[in-house]
Simulated scan of single mutants.
Amino acid sequence: MPIYAYRCSACGHAKDVLQKLSDAPLTTCPACGAQSFSKQVTAAGFQLKGSGWYATDFKGGSTATPATPAASDAAKPEAAKAEASASPSSSTSCGGSCACH
């Protein structure tokens, strides 16, 4: 059952009411008795979270692009970059045994 926000335009009394969709809207203010109690327009009470369509397609308004080798290297922490450059590479012609690295 949805929760509707009501507000009296005569006295300003506000109340949230749990009602069925088939229930008639309230019109009488419980505080002052005036016939000016009406439903208010409110935001939805839920959020779409996780890896679903909302989070990946519309949040932030940007499109996803595949990562390039330069972009993935830029995403590495600085400690990992320093460690990778300090360790000798086995794919070089000298095998990492010289001081050229």
Rank of each mutant, 00 (worst) to 15 (best):
G60V: 09
M1Q: 07
P69S: 14
T42G: 09
G60P: 05
L21S: 08
F46V: 13
P69G: 09
F58D: 05
D57G: 13
S90A: 14
G50V: 03
P69R: 10
G45T: 10
S62R: 13
C29A: 09
T28L: 14
R7V: 05
A79N: 11
H101L: 12
F58P: 02
H13D: 07
E78V: 13
H101T: 11
G45W: 01
D57Y: 10
S9C: 07
H101Y: 10
K15A: 10
F58Y: 05
Q40I: 07
A24K: 08
A80M: 12
A44C: 12
Q35Y: 03
Q47S: 15
C8K: 00
S89K: 11
A86I: 07
F37E: 01
R7T: 05
K15H: 07
K20W: 04
G52I: 10
G12I: 05
S85N: 07
V17W: 07
P77I: 12
C32L: 08
C8H: 04
A74C: 11
K20H: 11
M1W: 08
E78G: 13
K76P: 02
T92S: 15
Y4R: 11
Y54C: 09
K81V: 00
V17N: 05
H101A: 02
W53M: 12
G12D: 02
S85F: 08
G52W: 08
T63I: 10
A14R: 13
Q47D: 15
G52V: 08
G60Y: 01
A44R: 01
S89Y: 03
L48W: 00
T27Q: 04
V17P: 00
S87I: 11
A5Q: 01
A34T: 14
A44S: 12
D73P: 01
G96R: 10
P2V: 06
S36W: 04
G96D: 11
S9I: 07
T27S: 06
A5G: 08
T56S: 11
C11W: 03
C100D: 07
F58M: 10
G52S: 09
T92P: 05
C94S: 05
L26V: 04
S85C: 08
Y4G: 06
K59M: 14
P77R: 12
H101K: 11
G50K: 03
A80T: 13
V41S: 12
S72F: 11
G96I: 09
A79P: 03
D16I: 02
A70W: 07
L48V: 03
A55E: 15
A67G: 11
C94K: 09
S51V: 02
P77H: 10
L26H: 00
C11L: 10
A82M: 13
D16A: 06
S97N: 08
K39V: 06
D73N: 14
P88A: 15
P2H: 09
S72K: 15
T42D: 04
F58K: 03
T68C: 09
G95S: 05
A71N: 06
G52D: 13
